[in-house]
Design a binder for these strands. Structure first.
Lengths: 150, 150
DNA sequence: ATTTATTGTAACATATTAAGTTATATTTAA
DNA sequence: TTAAATATAACTTAATATGTTACAATAAAT
């Protein structure tokens, strides 16, 4: 569960920061993610290593995107948050010919599968998602307004 | 972690059964996987639902492939073992516009990414992997034999 | 200068989930 | 009829993820 949950949380954080367009403290992100500031900072630490998010310490500090949102793709975030191998394999039994050869047997197929996702995730940027969200919010506001009138 | 760990365990089981070419009891599979028979049976229950593995109860019973190994692909096993959404999203915060719209925003991209893996995993069958393994075992036996001689 | 609000990170605690175990009904070969 | 299997439920233990507290470092605001 965890790997993909971190992935979606990280996307959330990036869109949120981009949408607000200013420094956002971990406390605010934590509220939005229904978690706590340390958890947010731990997750952002992964994004920092990949030059996706930067931070400003001290009072009035917080987090911001390190690159234009158009240049941050889902693939970048995916790589930053995956940590372990995507198709992960538990303990090897060296006394079993199947077990001891399995990684080798599967390497090519797993690599191909993972690589096939790259162009699909690469083409979706935080800028694109933020714009899509802005449209949704706009439409909602209109429909809310109509509800109010009728 | 778990989803992909189950995926590789299930592949292990299918190759093992195919390689031996007979009914294999859960105790033997458990030994090979360094786990315990109930864990194996629980995992096989998922494969049974997808008509990949069948069982024979009673003495001398065990598990067997329900289809020719050539017709069991990594994609079939992937689908049988994934259980939850591949790109899983934790709790939604309905008071946050980002959180409440995120699933919708990401749906297309995630679906495309997952679908892009399908042909890659579809083309790799248990028959193919078993043959590949047989070649490796053959080579090893030769090199072992040479070691023995020199 | 001092206070306040922030990050970064370590250490610890709690909660959740996965894995392992025991037990038992059912099945079937020997 | 016995022995060796599966299927599955209920329970226990272990592993992992999440949450919390604490505190040093930093920098803005006063």
């Amino acid at each position: 569960m965890q790997a993909s949950a971190n992935f979606t949380k990280a996307i959330h954080i990036c869109i949120y920061i981009n949408l607000k367009g200013k420094l956002i403290p971990s406390s605010q992100l934590a509220e939005s993610l229904k978690t706590n500031p340390v958890v947010v900072r731990r997750l952002i630490a992964l994004l920092r290593k990949h030059n996706i998010i930067g931070s400003v310490s001290g009072s009035q500090g917080g987090f911001h995107l390190l690159r234009p949102a158009k240049e941050i793709s889902l693939w970048n975030i995916f790589e930053a948050t995956k940590e372990e191998e995507f198709f992960h394999r538990p303990k090897v039994n060296h006394e079993c010919v199947v077990s001891s050869n399995l990684s080798g047997l599967l390497f090519d197929a797993f690599q191909e599968a993972e690589r096939s996702m790259k162009p699909k995730l690469k083409k979706v940027s935080i800028a694109f998602l933020t714009n899509k969200l802005k449209k949704i919010i706009g439409e909602k506001e209109v429909s809310e307004a109509i509800k109010g009138v009728f």
